[in-house]
């Protein structure tokens, strides 16, 4: 009755690993093809290297940057801003999401304002934050928080509201008081929603940091790109984008690892991992 379950799981996992080298090879092939095309087009002059840079130039610049200490200072600042924005936005989203979900009057009164606040394009807030908080990291953190908060908030709200009524009734029959319901039922349910939006939340924290830097800062990856743009250094711009991409990939896979560890109880987890 139960024996088949385990081998089946193993087989599914094995199938993914088996196809993984092939998949990676194909993905690398696409990347290589893209660089080749770019190289050929710029080398033959069909695309002006001044506007489009050249792949070799970009790689060379990136390698050179990676060897300097200044680069890591910029990277570190962007990383710090991202982490702070994510942490503050997530904690605030969880606390306020819970509060709203458990206090129907509060959520009913504030509902239109929350929706309105979420509808504001965050980029227009960047100068305001810079005005309030200066050109240091905190104006970027604020921008990241303004993006991350709403994602987490809506997910926690949903997670608390959508707890199955039967599970709730069962938990109450088992003798849980409201504090225990919070710990054993509402929190796990809400956290599963938070984790399912983790990729988006981390991504938005980074977007907030980089856009903030881009619009006005003295350090960070976004600042470097803005600077390169200011002097028409397309190689620098593309190199900055390349670094940003690598950075996102690293952060995203770290999030995936955490997610699969913490959401082991969810049936979808294994499927999610395999598609990545």
């Amino acid at each position: 009755m139960h024996a088949p379950a385990a081998p089946e799981q193993k087989r599914a996992r094995k199938r993914v690993i088996d196809s993984r080298p092939q998949l990676l090879a194909l993905q690398a092939f696409v990347l290589l093809g893209f660089f080749m095309l770019w190289h050929v087009l710029t080398a033959t002059g069909l695309l002006n290297p001044f506007f489009f840079a050249t792949p070799l130039g970009v790689l060379e610049r990136t390698a050179k940057d990676l060897a300097t200490a200044a680069f890591y200072r910029h990277l570190g600042i962007t990383f710090l801003e991202t982490v702070l924005a994510f942490a503050i936005g997530t904690v605030a989203g969880i606390v306020i999401g819970f509060w709203f979900a458990r206090a129907p009057l509060v959520s009913a009164v504030f509902d239109p304002y929350v929706k309105a606040a979420n509808a504001v394009p965050r980029v227009v807030l960047a100068p305001i934050f810079a005005l309030w908080l200066g050109l240091g990291i905190w104006s970027k953190v604020a921008l990241g928080v303004s993006l991350t908060f709403f994602i987490v908030f809506f997910n926690v709200y949903q997670g608390v509201k959508e707890v199955s009524p039967v599970i709730l009734a069962n938990a109450r029959m088992l003798g849980m008081n409201s504090r225990q319901l919070l710990r054993h039922v509402y929190l796990p349910s809400a956290m599963s929603w938070v984790f399912s939006s983790l990729h988006t939340a981390v991504g938005f924290a980074l977007v907030g940091a980089v856009v903030g830097e881009y619009l006005g800062a003295s350090a960070g990856l976004g600042y470097r790109i803005a600077q390169a743009e200011g002097v028409f250094d397309t190689v620098g711009v593309f190199s900055g984008m390349l670094v940003l991409t690598l950075f996102v990939i690293v952060i995203d896979s770290a999030v995936s690892a955490i997610e699969s560890k913490l959401l082991r109880w969810r049936p979808q987890t294994s499927a999610t991992v395999s598609t990545h």
Partner: peptide
């Protein structure tokens, strides 16, 4: 009273 529900009532995260 102890209540065994008709539909799924186990906590999926435990």
């Amino acid at each position: 009273a102890g209540y065994m529900f008709q539909s799924e009532a186990l906590m999926p995260w435990k």
